[in-house]
Design a protein around this nucleic acid. Structure first.
Length: 468
DNA sequence: CGTCTCACG
DNA sequence: ACGTACGTGAGACGT
């Protein structure tokens, strides 16, 4: 069934390519001639790939990876359907109670899922003070409701309602429906050509955005379980991979020093930024430094940082100035990336993956500055994507060589998740740790943190001292 | 099908 | 004066 659906899509795309590059269509004849046309296209694209110096990226990383993604899709992820149903019941009960409370305050029933109706109830009928606008009227997004919730209980209830309904419609209902009846497995798609930076994406369902931040929502993770009797879920995530990539590209001494000596990078940044000892950095200062570090990776603006830190734009501006004064090589790196993007019209990752930025010299300031931020972010995000892809290819190869039955089941950008056969745990741990930390040589070490457990929520760190 | 909202890295 | 943090996918609504 599924295969049939995709065959149609693939043939249609193949025909589009034939039309564009071969100026012909695949004839509608009884024999399948598509292999012949694929070969003709291959000869054209092979040269094009070579011309762009992407042979190695394509043949050594992306092609082997496509088989791994297919394997992950086929294997699927086991879910505990009983827990899904129980969670679903609990969520329904909460939605029911909260809805009633909201309707009582509003003095009427309305569709809580409609921003339009909600906006009317909150800002017209109940007279709450609007905080910001969208294209079509007053915004009711999370930021607005959070501000209002200090004074107005109804805003807090809406926030709670939104959380539960998100869980219900985005995760619980689709998972219950999609978990295969006999095997209890969910099979997502891992898309290799969906993003502009080289990351993967996941869809139908998206398994790269399973909740983790909110307490109640976390419980969704608990339904993801091993498929082996007495088996484990093993999760391994890269520590600060994007900041390590930034350290590599910029050569910034402070970052190099921090990563080479295993320091907490946000604490370290805070101590430099505020000019104090690491021991004296407060939680708030560390958090601010963390947001600044992220800001750098995103091509930070004073406006964006001000909003993120809840400070004035002037304060944000001086924050950024301080940052660049103390991390001069990062400033240099950013300037040189933008200069290169402007002259060449594209930026590259460490493997030579290219992203074109056609608006980098636009006379429209918004478009131009958006391209600046993409020029800064893409080599960092894309290189991190390259690194984990190489690790996946090498891990898969070694699993095959060792004849392991354990499976790679998920990739979440800086994290790999494995469905582990109990008997193979030690081997799997060694292979995963080694290949993630040695997938590529940067001027700073790569660190992978491994955790195991009986589901994707309750995981314990795995250290070298652990008995396995 | 665009808009709004929100889940993740 | 202006006004956006980078990259995704999905569900509901309403035109």
């Amino acid at each position: 069934m599924i295969l049939k659906k995709y065959t149609v899509i693939v043939l249609q795309r193949l025909n589009n390519l034939c039309s564009h590059f071969l100026k012909t269509y695949i004839p509608q004849v009884p024999q399948d001639t598509s292999a012949y046309f694929i070969f003709k296209l291959y000869n054209i694209f092979k040269e094009e790939i070579k011309r762009h110096n992407m042979d190695s990226l394509f043949f050594n990383i992306e092609v082997p990876l496509s088989r791994i993604l297919a394997d992950m899709e086929r294997t699927g992820v086991m879910v505990d359907r009983k827990s899904l149903r129980e969670l679903s019941k609990e969520v329904d009960l909460n939605i029911d109670n909260i809805s009633k409370d909201i309707f009582k305050i509003a003095g009427q029933e309305f569709n809580l899922n409609s921003p339009k109706q909600l906006r009317k109830v909150l800002f017209e009928n109940l007279g709450l003070p609007p905080q910001k606008k969208t294209k079509t009227g007053y915004s009711t997004d999370e930021e607005v409701l959070r501000k209002l919730s200090f004074k107005y209980h109804v805003a807090k209830l809406i926030l709670e309602y939104r959380q539960f309904s998100k869980l219900k419609y985005t995760y619980l209902i689709p998972f219950i429906q999609q978990a295969d009846n006999s095997s209890s497995k969910i099979h997502a798609s891992f898309n290799q050509t969906a993003t502009k930076t080289g990351r993967l994406s996941s869809s139908s369902p998206n398994l790269q955005n399973i909740p983790i931040r909110e307490d109640f929502a976390q419980r969704i993770r608990r339904v993801f379980v091993p498929s082996f009797d007495g088996g484990y879920i093993l999760s391994s995530d890269y520590s600060q991979i994007e900041l390590r990539v930034l350290a590599h590209f910029s050569g910034e001494d402070a970052l190099l020093h921090a990563f080479r000596n295993g320091k907490d990078i946000h604490l370290y940044t805070a101590s430099i930024l505020f000019g104090i000892d690491i021991q004296k950095v407060t939680k708030k200062q560390r958090d601010a430094a963390k947001r600044v570090n992220f800001g750098i990776i995103y091509g930070m603006s004073s406006y964006g940082l001000a909003k993120e830190l809840h400070i004035s734009e002037d304060e944000a501006r001086s924050f950024i100035e301080d940052y660049f004064a103390r991390y001069p090589k990062i400033k240099k790196f950013i300037d040189s990336i933008i200069k290169e993007a402007k002259s060449k019209g594209y930026v590259k990752t460490i493997t030579g993956r290219i992203r074109y930025l056609p608006d980098i010299n636009s006379s429209n300031r918004d478009l131009r500055e958006f391209s600046f931020r993409q020029a800064i972010n893409t080599p960092i995000q894309g290189t991190a994507a390259d690194i984990i892809k190489i690790a996946m290819v090498n891990i898969f190869r070694e699993f095959n060589k060792e004849g392991l039955s354990s499976k790679l089941i998920l990739q979440v950008h800086d994290e790999l998740v494995f469905d582990v056969n109990k008997k193979e745990l030690k081997k799997v741990v060694d292979i995963v740790k080694n290949n993630m930390e040695n997938s590529i040589n940067l001027v700073v070490p790569l660190v992978a943190n491994l955790k195991i457990g009986k589901n994707w929520l309750e995981l314990s760190p795995l250290t070298s001292n652990n008995e396995i």
